[in-house]
């Protein structure tokens, strides 16, 4: 297995006056083509982790390496090309004056020739189904469409990892659903590695592996099924909620995690 990202003993402290660390000894790896969801409550250090991964913050301790390249002050620009980050706020990360300008922004920074940029922009817009909006200005776009553009802007740089830092939180449920489908497709067609820092149940449910963070530490990790079963404090998908409630009412439901299809099957028995 190829290790796309390796994080070792990452420690960070926002406020030196406080004793508690924002992050302490966080270690994990991500494999090529994997979808890793990182969940946890506000203040668990998730977003700090995102900023560390792209070198916007410098850790006190520990090491990050992407594709075998270790993050330092000198390599951080190269690592940023490997990790495409999409932020929470759709409006504030839209830098260009139109959709296609924004997708091209990262390419312009590489001093790429116009012809090459044109190809990359076309491809990236196609991936997120935004081609017909290419001349639109951001004021005419919905939050969901702007996030698509942000994803295209990251993908245009051909990163090996797409990092989503609560990229869904400002969107309405329907846009979330659409965007999630797009990402699931991209993961397959482009063999994309995705790390999503999230609160969203559905985003967590489609991942391959879940990392649970609490006050700056990784407290659990496993498949979504394992995590939803083990962590009762985290709201699971609807079918599993239903199973728990039925169990609480003394019904003889199975004691393992159930997907919607399994639940329907059980009800039809």
């Amino acid at each position: 297995m190829v290790q796309q990202l390796e994080v070792e003993n990452l420690t960070f402290q926002h406020d030196q006056r406080l004793n508690s660390k924002t992050l302490s000894n966080v270690s994990f790896t991500v494999q090529k083509g994997e979808w890793l969801a990182i969940i946890g409550h506000n203040g668990s250090g998730k977003s700090t982790l995102a900023q560390l991964l792209v070198g916007l913050l410098v850790p006190e301790n520990g090491q990050i390496s992407a594709d075998g390249l270790i993050m330092t002050e000198d390599t951080k620009w190269e690592i940023r090309r490997k990790i495409g980050l999409v932020f929470q706020n759709p409006e504030n990360q839209f830098i260009g004056s139109t959709v296609q300008d924004d997708v091209a922004f990262g390419l312009e920074n590489l001093n790429m020739s116009y012809n090459e940029m044109k190809i990359r922009v076309d491809e990236a817009l196609e991936m997120v189904n935004m081609t017909r909006f290419r001349f639109h200005e951001p004021t005419n776009l919905s939050g969901g469409q702007m996030q698509r553009v942000a994803i295209a802007g990251a993908l245009a740089l051909k990163p090996s990892i797409l990092l989503l830092d609560e990229a869904f939180v400002m969107l309405d449920p329907l846009s979330r659903k659409d965007l999630l489908e797009t990402l699931e497709n991209l993961k397959i067609t482009e063999d994309l590695t995705i790390i999503s820092i999230t609160h969203d149940v559905n985003e967590t449910a489609v991942s391959d592996r879940v990392l649970v963070m609490e006050s700056g530490e990784v407290v659990n990790s496993g498949s979504p099924e394992e995590i939803f079963l083990a962590e009762q404090a985290i709201d699971p998908p609807f079918a599993e909620q239903l199973r728990r409630d039925l169990m609480a009412k003394g019904r003889s439901v199975p004691e393992t995690y159930m997907t919607e299809r399994e639940m329907l099957g059980w009800l039809c028995k």
Partner: peptide
Amino acid sequence: NRAEDMANAMEVRGYQSGTKRSTFRQ
């Protein structure tokens, strides 16, 4: 807040002031 968000967004997409950039708008 917005300015900080923007600065971060620009930086992670490789913007460094003083380096040569090409332009997409022709």
